[in-house]
Amino acid sequence: MTTRIDTRFAELKAEGRAAFVTFVMAGDPDPATSLEIVKALPKAGADIIEIGMPFTDPMADGPSIQAAGLRALQAGMTLKKTLQLVRDFRSSDNKTPIVLMGYYNPIYIYGVDKFLPDAKAAGVDGLIIVDLPPEEDAELCLPAMKAGLNFIRLATPTTDDKRLPAVLANTSGFVYYVSITGITGSASADSSAVSAAVARIKRHTKLPVCVGFGIRTPEAAHDIAQHANGAVVGTALVDALKASLDADGKATARTVGAVADLAAALAQGVHEAKQAAE
């Protein structure tokens, strides 16, 4: 099974570049604007798009992404509509990998058996589910792999060498290294520590390693991209979106551009980084 994620990393490797991975929340600030934002991201240089599935209780997220999820829910976003967003995006882009990221409960309630084929058919390539560690693989990870979706696992500074093999065992697509112990958007990643951590993970896997949490600027993205196969930016994009909203929290004419412009600057930072030889 080869997903769009695998294909994209093979292309990037051939070009000697790191991946610029963007995160935006589905339905933020409303479903229509959200679709326009997702469509604008590949043009701005995003190599992979993570789309957040809004949840009322995002335990690993900081205030920015919490608020983004609540804006989306208030605008009527549901998991069904998130899959529709992916379908709509796919009608004009069949290459950019889409990863859905979020928490397990909405999927559990949707029904795993129904969700996986629906997600695959919509054009989803991978899943990152924050509250499903390897100990709960039977819930979604194993069925997802069977359904042809990558299950991308988070590795963290607390994932030691003893635990890494278990974390990596059923991971596919790429490994998402969480560069800090903390919630999204809270601290900045230190590039030398990240470099060492990526090297440690690579001793255990051939999969690409992308780094996220705490990357906010083109400079930081550039820095991280020298040490990893990809840099993930979420909170900074969500903050740019929020800054563009009117006093009632509604989208303005600037909203799509605000996200796309920051994405373009970040993409440049990532793409100018020289990849260390593998």
């Binding site: 509250d131 560690p133 390897p134 100990e135 963290t156 607390t158």
Partner: peptide
């Protein structure tokens, strides 16, 4: 051993917390 009472319970936490 995995913390389940029937289908209930379990360990649905972020990887950062799992080792703890």
């Amino acid at each position: 051993d995995t913390g389940h009472f029937g289908i209930f319970g379990g360990r649905f936490v972020a990887e950062t917390l799992m080792p703890l």
